[in-house]
């Protein structure tokens, strides 16, 4: 469906002398995370001031991303190729798959550099409240690719929805014959002061204590 801007309210920017094209751009930009109408207006003015150095390269980049980036058919990660670069990398240990909620979590793990295996991006978490069931997540492709996998690491949030998803995946993966299913540890963050931790984190850290 094509974008159709809503009719302007009296006193809004479009009721002033602002060109319609700019108003539309401000409206679209203000839908982006972290931007409101004011910051979108500033961004548009900045783009107009720097057309050659910023606006045109941005247009080209947006065009390119829209044309080339898509979801990897194997792991659900976003990349220019499908299967993606991670799935086809020869120097990665593909017998270990790390299951994450979204691309942001995948990038976080890649920044940490601690995992050198494959990934699987679910695209969300199971949620009874929001009516998100297993059919709405990228779960079936995960079950199809685990036949020759030694370990699946469930790197999902330590939240009610995250762990509900982890338990569900654990059952399905066990039934699919995965030998080792692990999850991230719970507990105190590195550099965290016990005094300032909430009681839930403290309780779970104590429960997951290890011998020294």
């Amino acid at each position: 469906m094509s974008y159709r801007p809503p009719s302007a309210a009296p006193g809004s920017s479009s009721a002033t002398s602002q060109p319609q094209a700019m108003t539309d751009l401000v409206r679209l930009l203000s839908r982006l995370p972290g931007l409101g109408p004011r910051s979108a207006r500033r961004a548009v003015l900045h783009l107009l001031k720097n057309q050659d150095s910023l606006m045109h390269p941005l247009m080209t980049a947006l065009d390119q991303v829209a044309a080339t980036v898509s979801k990897c058919e194997r792991c659900g990660a976003l990349d220019e190729t499908s299967p993606c670069q991670i799935c086809t990398a020869p120097n990665r240990d593909h017998s270990r798959i790390c299951v994450v909620r979204d691309m942001g979590d995948l990038w976080a793990l890649e920044r940490a550099g601690a995992h050198k295996g494959g990934y699987h991006v679910l695209g969300g978490l199971l949620s009874a409240l929001d009516g998100i069931g297993p059919d709405k997540l990228f779960i079936e492709p995960l079950l199809q690719r685990v036949s020759d996998v030694e370990e699946v690491i469930l790197a999902l949030p330590a939240s009610v929805e995250g762990q509900t998803t982890a338990h569900y995946l654990g059952d399905r993966l066990r039934a699919a014959g995965v030998a080792t299913i692990t999850r991230l540890a719970y507990g105190a963050p590195v550099g965290g002061d016990l005094e300032f931790l909430d009681d839930g984190t403290l309780a779970i850290a104590l429960k997951s204590r290890q011998a020294v």
Partner: peptide, 25 residues
């Protein structure tokens, strides 16, 4: 202000985790 966090105590127990979500629903 947080008083008590039962959700943190049931993350390991699938049945209890689902029960918590069910009774709240």
């Amino acid at each position: 202000e947080s008083l008590h966090t039962p959700s943190a105590h049931v993350l390991d127990d699938r049945a209890a985790l689902l029960a918590l979500q069910y009774v709240c629903t």
